[in-house]
Design a protein around this nucleic acid. Structure first.
Lengths: 245, 245
DNA sequence: GAGTGGTCTAGACCACCAA
DNA sequence: TGGTGGTCTAGACCACTCT
């Protein structure tokens, strides 16, 4: 015997998916649904809350329960051939890639493990907010081993200055300073955002984040860079193309 | 001014993340939390419900509110060099890859677009449940253009029979029947599961699914296969390694 | 001002689990 | 059997948006 909230949620979900309620339009107001199903207010709200957590609707005070737009599937990252920056990839739209923070840091256990150095080793830590359109779509944190970062700063740009103008992508800068990124491994997972991530990216409920952990190595297998990227799953996808055999 | 439920959620979240409540243990029972915060039962439940939707806890009737185990980060898919089957990849554990359904179908608009054929074209449609340990970790749906599938069936195994024993991976079978998969593109996103997916994979609330859409092409750029894979994000990650430059 | 959803209460009964 | 969380009610008041 299903619960009332479950039945209400099922009927509304089916109506949404069948197109009876169009994206951008609103569901009937709570009082109407209470009347229709003969239930208390909280029961209807629980049903709608479930739909919100599935990413189907967004309730808005004073407006109504808005049916969410279908996910705007966008290509976002595709590392074949030369590395491209965020702005280059989403070039057609008004995209931005802002350095929020840059400076020297001590590697914690996770980062040290990825870079193959000991915990507490000096690393350059950069945090960027990558946006397209209005909101932040991805938070990019990057760590570079101290010696490699110092060589880049000596030969090219001061990456430890968050306001420094970086004329091209990091891998190009590395090559100028005699570091040769040769291979990159990305591991992609997903989870629900924490409150801070929801705040920064303006995520509605029911939207997970894609978490990408990357390690880039040179020809000797030495790690030259590692990144953690947290992206809003309603605004981006990751795409990879590779040869078989 | 934060809400009561928000404050309660914040305090409990912090306590969990700081290790005050260990994974596998339970939070204080509702009556205790009601007393501690001086609130009604539903207010505490709303707070806990939020934590559940973040993937931090799983309330269990008769047991308590269990702190979830930290995500068992596992490598799951890494297409470099020869294609490997699910079972080969997760070989060390008790993994399985069961064909739930196989048969001829008409391509809908999405699939037709991916395969570069017209809507309604005859395609072979296979659905698999890929598991490791107890639960289903990934649902794999695959579509193969009619002529290619027929060639495979003629030369090797009857893929339209869901109980047929497939001795090796699909790409090897293709090569035997003069189809040459050369390049594959995977696009990865994430969303919350629908009720059916939650049912099949036994997903607790707060766990998103990784959605991978793949198109494999031959040397002429002709699509020879397309797949949609829906995987439980608390049980798997996708990993890619590729050369730079 | 009228209508929307958001929060909170106090109390009831149900379903599940362990001892 | 006693304790756990799950569902539901009826009513109250608040915060926001539109006209």
């Amino acid at each position: 015997m299903p619960t009332k909230r479950g039945q209400i949620a099922n009927e509304l979900r089916e109506a949404i998916l069948s197109g009876e309620y169009q994206p951008g339009s609103t569901l009937p107001p709570l009082p109407v649904l209470m009347e229709r199903y003969g239930t208390a207010r909280d029961t209807v709200r629980d049903a709608i809350s479930a739909l919100a957590n599935e990413g189907l609707v967004t309730p808005r005070r004073g407006i109504g329960t808005v049916v969410r737009e279908t996910m705007p599937v966008e290509l976002a990252y595709s590392p074949t051939a030369p590395a491209r920056t965020w702005a280059q990839q989403v070039s057609s739209q008004n995209a931005s890639d802002i350095v929020i923070n840059a400076g020297w840091d001590k590697a914690d256990a996770d980062i040290a493990g990825r870079l193959g150095v000991s915990s507490g080793t000096r690393v350059l830590h950069r945090t960027r907010h990558q946006s397209r359109g209005s909101g932040v779509a991805q938070i990019h944190e990057q760590w570079i081993p101290g010696p490699i970062a110092e060589a880049i700063i000596r030969d090219t740009v001061d990456l430890s200055d968050k306001d420094a103008v970086v004329p091209t992508d990091l891998f190009s800068l590395m090559r100028i300073s005699r570091t040769n990124p040769a291979e990159t491994t990305e591991t992609i997972g997903a989870r629900m955002p924490d409150p801070e991530e929801r705040e920064v990216m303006g995520l509605p409920s029911g939207v997970p984040v894609l978490v990408t952990k990357r390690v880039t190595r040179d020809n000797d297998g030495q790690a030259v860079e590692t990144s953690t990227m947290v992206g809003a799953a309603d605004r981006m996808t990751n795409s990879f193309t590779m040869a078989l055999r």
